[in-house]
Design a protein around this nucleic acid. Structure first.
Lengths: 200, 200
DNA sequence: CGAATGACGAAATATGAAAAACGTCAGTCG
DNA sequence: CGACTGACGTTTTTCATATTTCGTCATTCG
């Protein structure tokens, strides 16, 4: 790749990023369906057709935004996973952090929540991949916990998956929305402790 | 209550039951929305208006059917809970049984599954009550397990709730529908064992 | 020459009137 | 007298149509 090609890629990346920023702002304000590509183009002072030089469709913008947001979530999860505390505490905090973030999105960014629900209903690969990356992260935490003597010997990948499945009620956006009204005996902390016990 | 009133109640109950039977058959065959009360009435050789002497609305029929089906499910769960095997085994089989029944409904009785999804989305109290009854059943199993030395001393009600939350991926109709395609490391049995470990 | 656009066909969505279904009630019939 | 019904007002659904939005492409412009 020569200097000219680098410059081309740079401007291209810059454009895609600007489009994503505009789309994210408009989607959050007006909602995904109420925002059309003409709105996004006007916001950036370009023609609607020009958008399609960078994204193959409006849905493609949605996908790219989801990917970017999930990347942020992954960075946060990775940061938590590197904290210098016990594996137990990092696993616990991971779930609680996830829980808080989901609640936050549900309440203060309702439009985003709608987009998330659509993405989950349609089973986007980007979400599956994100969950798989998270699972790898947690599996590593389990291995560290085993090495540190916190957890028993076990299949770390399986344990990570089961741990995620067990805490799905705290992280799954739709379930959280439903479960808010339910009469509950235990707190989120109780459920995490329960799942942690299964690993020890 | 004298003899006459008993007879009245009997015929009334008989009518409600016949209506429910007809409605259940038609709903299963044509779907809930495609079946109207006129269809149900015609099937029974009565006028649509007469239906409303027994049910205040079509939705009321839906509610009553859900209650009847959940009652059957509860009976099955209660039967399992009384088997003369260890509490561990009964808890495990309860979840696996629930899992099988949900899968069965999803595949062979798709119309019923749609009705279930609607009921869950709308958070019908009858479902909450059913789950609460199941939880009491499981809490009792946990107590028996504690008494038998299978499980450690703990809050049985909390444990039952956490156990149900942990196995929600195996029992929640919508989640099962979604998770079918996912790449999975563990089997349903693995997840149940995981949750059981948390109680021991 | 390639980035950008206006014009345009295809696809999706909003609109509104017609039809169907819901649910009520005065009145019939056994 | 009371179980039951036909007729009817109201609400919901359907469906054909108009409008918007999507996404493409030949053409323009720097």
């Amino acid at each position: 790749m020569d200097v000219q090609e680098q410059a081309l890629d740079a401007t291209r990346q810059d454009n895609t990023c600007r489009i994503l920023n505009a789309a994210e702002r408009l989607f959050k304000h007006y909602g995904y369906t109420k925002t059309n590509v003409a709105d996004i183009a006007r916001d950036l002072g370009m023609s609607p057709a020009n958008i399609y030089r960078f994204f193959s469709s409006k849905a493609d913008i949605h996908h790219a935004l989801a990917k970017r947001m999930l990347e942020e979530a992954y960075v946060a999860a990775a940061a938590n996973a590197q904290r210098p505390v016990s594996a137990t505490e990092r696993l616990r905090d991971h779930v609680l952090q996830q829980h808080r973030m989901t609640l936050e999105t549900m309440f203060s960014e309702k439009k985003v929540h709608e987009m998330v629900v659509v993405a989950m209903e349609q089973q986007w690969p980007v979400i599956q991949q994100h969950l798989e990356r998270i699972r790898l992260l947690l599996a590593d935490l389990v291995r560290q916990g085993i090495a540190a003597g916190e957890f028993r010997e076990q299949n770390a990948d399986l344990a990570a998956e089961c741990f995620m499945s067990s805490s799905v009620m705290l992280c799954h956006p739709q379930l959280i929305a439903d479960a808010l009204l339910e009469t509950r005996i235990g707190t989120p902390e109780d459920l995490v402790e329960f799942a942690l016990r299964a690993i020890r």
